[in-house]
Amino acid sequence: QCLMDTRPLAAQILDTLQGHPRFHQLSAKFAVQLDGGEALAMLEHHHDLWLSALERDGQGLLAFGLAGCPVDEPLAAVAQDQGHELLVAVLELFLDLARPEQTRMRHLLMDMSREDFLAQLEPRLSRPLLNIGGWRRQASDAGLHIGTYPQAAPGQVYVGAGTPLGRLDPAMLKGAAQLAREYGDASLRLTPWQSLLLPSIAAADAPAATAALEQLGLLCSPQQALAHLIACTGSSGCGKALADTKSDALQLAGLLQRHGRQLDVHLSACPRSCAAAHVAPATLLAVAPGRYDLYLRDATQPGFGTLHARNLSIEAAEALLDARPRSNLDA
């Protein structure tokens, strides 16, 4: 479903951010998102500037917004060949207007409206901004990072494979590279979901590529419980951790698989939540080795959500999760 190949513009943006001395003043957390309209896309994470591809009257455009994400209502649009110019103008205007303590776009927009920012932005562009009233980016489909799915080119697919709990060891990476050369275009792509993609594979070769990835220990089916769990480094690699989350997650996955459940669960060894940028439907927060508090996501509650039970073993946590209605937690 991609509407443009984002790679050339992304490379141009990266070169500009690295090569333009003034842009080195930007905070390391100042973020730019370029979205090509794909069905597989991370759209919920806020960025200081986001650009999203669309088509209007046969013309390729880039909608854009500030301090938000592509599923928000856009401010305006430019032609795709104007995307780099827009980025430079937005960043230079931000640096002109922001005080030293205003390191992110949202900080600046607390002092001025988006409309005022646009009014000062437009004179810096070679062409007027375009009104695309009524257009909104559709949300992406869940789960498309694991399995086989069609690409735009006829007869070609990509194969997505999850890394077990975010760990990609050298044998996996070397094996995946060999498969990419054998079946695909010799490239690998990493995703925000701790998985990798082998693109440009002939549809007839997808079963063989998938079987080989599984032999390497990668997760190639969304029916695998482990494909839905995330866990931080845990006590085996972090001094702040209260539990061995990696081992506990493997135990939990085995119990869930036995009961035929695929639940999105986050195991966090401390409240910092390093492994998850967004709140999971269920979070197990470590309180001691092998013991966790269970939280269920609740939009009305801060942090991980509503505290459901305290000081649970992995077996007790799985039993409680297994008892939940399937429509509430199943991926």
Results as ranks from 00 to 15, higher is better:
Pro199Tyr: 05
Ala241Gly: 04
Leu40Gly: 10
Leu229Val: 04
Gln156Thr: 14
Asp330Val: 02
Pro154Lys: 10
Leu179Trp: 10
Pro100Ala: 09
Gln25Asp: 13
Leu263Lys: 06
Leu121Pro: 01
Gln194Val: 09
Gln262His: 03
Ala152Gly: 09
Leu294Asp: 08
Thr283Gly: 05
Pro302His: 04
Asp57Ile: 01
Glu182Ser: 14
Pro170Val: 13
His266Gly: 04
Glu122Gly: 00
Leu263Arg: 04
Thr191His: 05
Arg104Met: 10
Ala206Thr: 03
Leu255Ala: 14
Leu61Ser: 06
Pro70Met: 04
Gln33Met: 12
Leu121Tyr: 00
Leu213His: 01
Val279Met: 02
Gln262Gly: 08
Met42Ser: 15
Ala331Gln: 09
Leu26Cys: 08
Leu86Asn: 06
Arg261Asn: 05
Ala241Gln: 06
Thr16Met: 15
Gln178Trp: 04
Asp248His: 07
Ala241Trp: 07
Leu40Met: 14
His266Lys: 03
Gln80Val: 14
Ser140Asp: 08
Tyr149Gly: 03
Ala286Glu: 03
Arg181Tyr: 14
Val159Ile: 14
Glu115Lys: 09
Pro222Tyr: 04
Ala152Asp: 06
Leu307Arg: 00
Gly19Phe: 01
Ala203Cys: 06
Gly239Arg: 04
Gln25Lys: 15
Pro192Gly: 13
Ala41Ile: 11
Leu14Trp: 05
Arg167Glu: 13
His278Trp: 09
Ala209Asn: 10
Ala203Asn: 02
Leu130Trp: 06
Gln1Phe: 08
Leu190Glu: 06
Ala204Met: 03
Ala212Trp: 01
Gln102Cys: 01
Leu252Tyr: 03
Leu252Cys: 03
Leu125Glu: 08
Leu267Ile: 13
His45Val: 15
Pro100Asn: 09
Ser140His: 14
Gly68Leu: 02
Leu252Gln: 06
Ala139Trp: 06
Ser200Glu: 12
Leu66Gly: 04
